[in-house]
């Protein structure tokens, strides 16, 4: 049968793959936003002194790290609308269900990333903020969080890439994301190599773009006045700087 490049290129630039890829990215972005918001609150509960925060936060992490994401998606799509009639309406699409479901699961992992990032900020930092008369919320916002973000960035990028792939689980709730698009095409044509290759290309492009963004954002968190660029040599550093 051989590898048919015509089929390959035809699919590579087809709207169904592009739509599938955008759905995958969309689910990943929305669930990461949900996961970061919930994860931050859970992380605060876990690093806090109060048992009222620690116990429920610990329970959240315990529960959602234990349950397979696939099961959560099935519950979100099949079980919940049976219990909650309000979910039996148009707005509750596979996209919404998948984003919330993956977001809830991912929040447990983001909570641990954010917790370790908060804990890795030097004790002297909040101390200095407090000594300047900052209230607890200001210390958190202006001193601790900016430093924690830098530490949380690389593992969060990992999680984001993971979410792109996890979005393929949403095929069980009939979301036609990237991998499902390939699978559907294969089922019709039996051109496995061509359709899977197109999926590979899409995943590679998506992760490449994410990596470029990661580099750009991490550069913003370099905390140096002279941004390193390829052309700049040591002598162009302002006189007396960086001795």
């Amino acid at each position: 049968m051989g590898f048919d490049f015509d089929i390959f290129f035809e699919q590579l630039f087809s709207s169904s793959y592009l739509k599938g890829a955008l759905l995958s990215i969309g689910v990943a972005v929305v669930s990461l936003v949900i996961a970061t918001a919930i994860g931050f609150v859970v992380a605060l509960g876990r690093v806090g002194k109060s048992q009222f925060g620690r116990v429920p936060a610990g329970a959240y992490v315990w529960f959602f790290r234990a349950i397979p994401a696939l099961l959560v998606l099935l519950i979100m799509w099949n079980a919940l609308p049976q219990i909650l009639p309000s979910l039996r309406s148009d707005w509750y699409s596979p996209f919404v269900a998948a984003s919330i479901g993956l977001g809830l699961v991912e929040a447990a992992f983001m909570a641990e990333i954010i917790r370790s990032a908060l804990l890795s900020v030097d004790d002297g930092q909040p101390l200095a903020g407090r000594a300047l008369g900052m209230k607890p919320a200001t210390v958190m916002l202006k001193v601790t969080i900016p430093q924690a973000i830098r530490i949380a960035l690389p593992p969060t990028t990992n999680e984001f890439i993971g979410l792109i792939k996890y979005s393929s689980l949403a095929s069980v709730i009939s979301l036609r994301e990237l991998l499902t698009t390939a699978q559907v095409g294969v089922n019709i044509t039996f051109r496995y190599a061509e359709y899977y290759s197109v999926a590979i290309i899409y995943y590679l492009v998506i992760v490449s773009v994410i990596t470029v963004f990661q580099t750009m954002i991490e550069r913003r968190f370099a905390w140096i006045s002279v941004k390193p660029t390829k052309k700049r040599k040591a002598e162009s550093v302002p006189a007396g700087g960086l001795a």
Partner: peptide
């Protein structure tokens, strides 16, 4: 926090915000 504003503190390890 409000009462601390009248008292300045300098630490051994500087504790500047990096």
């Amino acid at each position: 926090a409000v009462q601390r504003r009248d008292i300045g503190m300098v630490f051994q390890k500087f504790n500047l915000f990096p």
